[in-house]
């Protein structure tokens, strides 16, 4: 039997919002340590890796490891039926072919349950090597979303170059070119407004802007986003999910022909 109860259904709603543009379906791998998801987008250019730790749930029970193949479009429809302040419980019998979502209103006067068929998805997990990144940038998530949106008007690629001074985002296309430079902030009162750069060596990489924009659908999950880069390896865009976990997007770079 698998049962996971979350007081804030908004977390699960935001998680779905963050992945449903990139992925049509994904497997939720549940074990006693929590729920993990790893899936590539259809074009195999990006990879989503999400982790929700069991201790972040109000109630979590997983008698046997269970992998639930979910159609994310259907799951989004079901989660739209939950109010933000509802308590959500996901539950499934061992080797079940359906999963049930139960939404309880705060005063318990309204309880809804939705049963969804599970899919048989082939499990192709990729090994992600531990990497010491040459540059790790932390910046306000809203700022990053704004930059990606503004630059995507200029071209289909964004060049991200990181030096000890700061990080520069550039794009060029038919209408012209654009550069956005963010300097490291010196002393900000609020951590989540800071721009920090930890640099081992300068890095410049090029990425497709439409994937960066898809990643920023996770902005509602966290005030801060972390970008990790090393020469010739995928970019990592990471958003924390409250105290319960994280969502990491890996994006393969574009290279000179």
């Amino acid at each position: 039997m698998f049962e996971a109860r979350l007081v804030q259904s908004s977390i699960l709603k935001k998680v779905l919002e963050a992945i449903k543009d990139l992925l049509n379906e994904a497997t939720f791998d549940c074990s006693d340590s929590g729920i993990q998801l790893q899936a590539m987008d259809n074009s195999h250019v990006s990879l989503v890796s999400m982790n929700l730790r069991s201790d972040g749930f109000d109630k979590y029970r997983c008698d046997r490891n269970i992998s639930m193949g979910m159609n994310l479009g259907s799951m989004t429809k079901i989660l739209k039926c939950a109010a933000n302040e509802d308590v959500v419980t996901m539950k499934a019998q061992d080797n079940a072919d359906t999963v049930t979502f139960v939404f309880e209103s705060p005063n318990q006067e309204k309880v809804s349950d939705y049963e969804m068929k599970l899919m048989n998805l082939d499990q192709e997990h990729l090994g992600i090597p531990e990497t010491e990144y040459a540059c790790v940038v932390r910046l306000p998530a809203g700022e990053f979303a704004r930059i990606c949106r503004d630059l995507s008007q200029f071209g289909e690629s964004v060049v991200i170059s990181c030096t000890k001074e700061g990080v520069k985002f550039s794009s060029a296309g038919d209408i012209g070119s654009a550069n956005i430079k963010l300097a490291q902030t010196s002393n900000v009162d609020k951590e989540e407004l800071a721009v920090t750069v930890e640099m081992q060596e300068p890095v410049t990489l090029t990425f497709a802007s439409r994937y960066l924009n898809s990643f920023t659908k996770a902005t509602s999950l966290s005030n801060v986003v972390q970008l990790s880069m090393s020469p010739d390896v995928p970019l990592v865009v990471e958003y924390r999910i409250g105290e319960i976990g994280h969502i990491r997007y890996y994006l393969a770079p574009k290279i000179e022909d």
Partner: peptide, 13 residues
Amino acid sequence: MSQTSITSYFSKR
């Protein structure tokens, strides 16, 4: 510029 694939960096387990 040509787009590379994520599978050329991360191997299937």
